[in-house]
């Protein structure tokens, strides 16, 4: 059985898969960076006492969490231009999808972590005369951030894997390239296995880096 497959032939397609890997990484990194900023903003919005801020944050989070990534991707790439009249290229659309999607989940991670900090910490800060913003910045946020790392890592890995769905909106990422090659050369087993290994390589390296960061931050 194994003999039927031409594993050595995969080498010829590595440059093309490399292009795919480049776009996968580009979209993951830029998308997650923006997603992290969105998550920070809307996560703090979810712990805000301001009803409007809280409301906007909640709507964003519920809409994104309640719809599939695939639907979001197709909607943003095919439907949104019909409304706005502005055509996005597929890579930009891909980044927008990953940013918006991860942002909603990260917002919930931020909210959970901030709320997990004991009430006494805020009280201690306020009793010393620090205002709400200062207490958040110097006392709550640094502690919450440490607690965010494990769930954030989880979300990063999920979002990286979600980029494979972007092949349906023609983003030239790893999965897209794999499908292209496999349908032209009838080497589905070799190519899709290689693609899987590439994803695994990315996520495993990320896990490794996160574990180091976690250890570094775990001072006391």
């Amino acid at each position: 059985m194994v003999g039927r497959f031409n594993w050595a032939g995969v080498i010829d397609f590595l440059p093309q898969l490399g292009t795919g890997l480049y776009y996968t990484l580009l979209i993951s990194i830029v998308g997650l960076l923006i997603g992290f900023i969105l998550g920070g903003i809307f996560g703090l919005g979810r712990v805000s006492k301001n009803k409007i801020v809280y409301g906007i944050s909640s709507v964003y989070i519920e809409v994104i969490r309640g719809t599939p990534v695939l639907v979001q991707a197709i909607w943003i790439f095919f439907a949104l231009p019909l409304i706005t009249g502005y055509n996005m290229d597929s890579v930009t659309a891909g980044i927008v999808v990953i940013a918006l999607n991860s942002g909603a989940y990260i917002a919930e991670i931020v909210r959970g972590s901030v709320q997990s900090i004991e009430k006494g910490q805020m009280e201690a800060g306020r009793s010393l005369g620090l205002n709400h913003g200062q207490t958040m910045r110097y006392i709550i946020w640094p502690q919450a951030f440490k607690r965010m790392i494990p769930p954030l890592g989880n979300q990063f890995i999920i979002s990286i894997k979600d980029t494979s769905l972007l092949s349906v909106i023609l983003v030239p990422e790893l999965m897209f390239q794999g499908r292209l090659i496999a349908s032209n050369h009838f080497n589905a087993v070799e190519i899709y296995t290689t693609v899987a290994v590439f994803y695994l390589a990315i996520t495993l390296s990320l896990s490794f880096v996160l574990r180091i960061i976690e250890r570094r931050l775990d001072i006391k």
């Binding site: 004991e118 006494g120 910490q121 009280e123 201690a124 800060g125 306020r126 009793s127 010393l128 005369g129 620090l130 205002n131 110097y138 006392i139 640094p142 502690q143 440490k146 001072i219 006391k220």
Partner: peptide, 29 residues
């Protein structure tokens, strides 16, 4: 906030800032 700067408070559960060392806890405010 400015009234609170004149009123020190000590809590049952201490509520020290665990991510800061002792002197940083004292220096912050």
């Amino acid at each position: 906030n400015s009234v609170r700067t004149e009123i020190g408070m000590v809590f049952q559960q201490f509520n020290l800032f665990p991510h800061k060392n002792v002197i940083e806890n004292i220096m912050l405010a």
